[in-house]
Design a protein around this nucleic acid. Structure first.
Lengths: 230, 230
DNA sequence: GGTACATTCTAACGATCTTGCGAATAACGA
DNA sequence: TCGTTATTCGCAAGATCGTTAGAATGTACC
């Protein structure tokens, strides 16, 4: 009787926690979460970014909403989704880290991605921040403008990938450039570095995105030009 | 073509990460992970603790192993399982925290669990550690002896729940007692506090287990009597 | 070698999840 | 009111997962 209560209670508790686990059990949903970590987005926007049907995206978003990982609100005829909190993005980061640490297959895939030229060269986060503050390095955010506005690394300049080739004159030829985008699985910064290197710039990338930066306890900036704590 | 490559690579990466997510999608597996976070255990031992059939436990452990969250080794005719690393326990803690933060149902269940008398009274971790060091409070670990030996809170005494009623004379009547067990969902410390309070001791509990303690960056002790960094 | 024990493998059933499709709903503008 | 657009709902087929029971494997002890 007493024993039963303990069992039932425990079952109930783990049942609830597993709801969050189930939400993380689908590749598409993980990708949707990463997109939403960049800021509030419409169903259509995330569906496009993840390259799935809008209806399917809606279904997955519903699942995420039922697990309380995302919230939605209406804006005119569109529905906007956002993460329920920064802790959700942090959970995503932790999940990726554990996967990278223990899944050999994932590490190999990442290494293949990193294997090209010298575009990687991981930089220490705090060191990067200090160098950027002193102007010794130019950090560029190659994500779309609205994601930059929502949150970006301190001292970073917005330089969306599609505009990059037209705006090369804004970048220094003497100082090193560090590009970043949405996170370790995002290839936009790779493309940016490839382009810049071909044009003779000293460019590297960091695998960090906003979520990784926040998870490390470092400050992020909001809106245009304003730097400081998030 | 190029775009296709980016898509395929991304799919591959998230596919891998979702393997870890899938492993976290079952209540039983989460409970197994928490048991293994207490130390290396045999299939039979965890099956008993989680109250499921040994065959089923074996199947779940296999799934966890395929997600690389646990490792196994043979010891005579038994198979011993352990977590692949502390980061796995940390992931479990983060998952629970997110679930508690956003799932109303879970919070209600936990509150029901906490609603009884005054047995709770959360204590700040570092404060608890300082008080324990100065001997102002007696911390007791009510888990089985082997789990205490594997890792325990600094300055904690082993006092397994089944033995508690026989060993009351070892506890002080003037100083407050803080009991802990496997984590927030474990009720052993609740039972200990209930027993101690009935016998006139000043007892509280902490919801922390070893994993929470480690995730907070605090040191844990190993083996009997030896205190210090893990 | 034979027996007992702990664990894993195989097969099977039902439950749940994914995905795709057509219809339904909600908001906006003419 | 009627389209248009954006999203969700309902439904169904196919895939995957959880659970159980019985057979098979590997190890230790006699």
């Amino acid at each position: 009787m007493y024993r039963m209560d303990g069992r039932n209670l425990k079952d109930l508790l783990y049942e609830q926690v597993s709801r969050v686990g189930k939400a993380l059990a689908s590749p598409k949903r993980l990708e949707l979460l990463e997109m939403l970590a960049q800021g509030e987005k419409s169903v259509e926007a995330v569906a496009g970014a993840v390259a799935i049907d809008v209806k399917l995206a809606s279904a997955h978003l519903k699942a995420l909403k039922e697990a309380r990982l995302v919230q939605s609100r209406r804006d005119g005829r569109r529905m906007l989704y956002r993460l329920s909190g920064h802790d959700v993005a942090q959970l995503g980061v932790t999940l990726r880290l554990v996967a990278e640490e223990h899944l050999l297959e994932l590490r190999l895939a990442l290494q293949r991605m990193m294997a090209e030229p010298d575009r990687l060269a991981q930089v220490g986060r705090k060191e990067l921040l200090a160098q950027a503050r002193r102007g010794e390095v130019v950090v560029i955010d190659v994500r779309p403008q609205d994601e930059y506005d929502n949150a970006h690394l301190p001292f970073a300049r917005s330089m969306p990938l599609p505009e990059l080739s037209h705006r090369l004159s804004e970048l220094p030829r003497d100082a090193p450039i560090v590009a970043y985008c949405r996170g370790p699985f995002c290839v936009m910064s790779d493309e940016a570095v490839a382009l810049l290197t071909k044009r003779g710039f000293r460019a590297r990338k960091t695998f960090d995105g906003i979520s990784e930066w926040r998870a490390a306890g470092l400050p992020v900036a909001r809106a245009r030009g304003r730097e400081g704590v998030s």
